[in-house]
Amino acid sequence: MKYIAIIILSLLSISIWAQTASEILQKIDDNMSSDNQIIESSMTIHGKRNSRTITSITYTVGTEKSFTEYLSPAREKGTKMLKLTDKLWIYSPSTDRTIQISGHMLRQSVMGSDMSYEDAMDDRKLSEVYEANIIGEETYEDKAVYVLELNATVNDIAYHSRKMWVDKQKFIPLKEELYAKSGQLLKQFTVSEVKKFNNRWYPTKMNYKDMLKQGKGTDMNVISIKFNQDIPEYIFTKAALKQ
């Protein structure tokens, strides 16, 4: 009897944990995703020999449409990227050409960073594609965090599982590890600054690193972010690329 009670209790606790885990994921999604957003950000790519910083502004509506324009450096200025569902077009002002990036090319790195186009494009909500479990609570960089383990619920996703250190108060993942099916650590994502915009927290300084490669990874800074703006629909058309 005693044992049964323990089992029931532990089952119960698992379900409570699970409940909270998906809640946490939901809260993260609430923070990170929105109906639409405009982000101005910079990306610093640490190459083997030098580092480069690229700034861009990105308009996103839902999860399917996004439009990015590069602002600096001069070489990249005016280059635009349009993503509609699983299609990606890039426009280059110097050649006045719109080029569609198809399947295999999506797996290439974005601007030499540790991120692939595919990484950048997959913006399905975490709660849609992963099932979360809380596997512990600890302190990360002086902040109380939940440690979450995420296992993919769909097949067509790059990373089989993730481990996340989520700030208990702000519901922002401060550190995230992305794993292969075999359990091999592939990429690591760390947040070093979180700021509040309107009433939501958003990471503003982060580092994205391919753990199999040597190097310092890619730093990303959010310069400004605006949520729920009026973004005209025409911006997500190929015609807009040329303007």
């Binding site: 790059a158 099916k181 199999l212």
Partner: peptide, 15 residues
């Protein structure tokens, strides 16, 4: 030697 590949759905795996 560590090898990384993708399965038919594009999911990474490495061993």
């Amino acid at each position: 030697v560590l090898v990384r590949w993708r399965d038919k759905n594009g999911m990474f795996d490495a061993i």
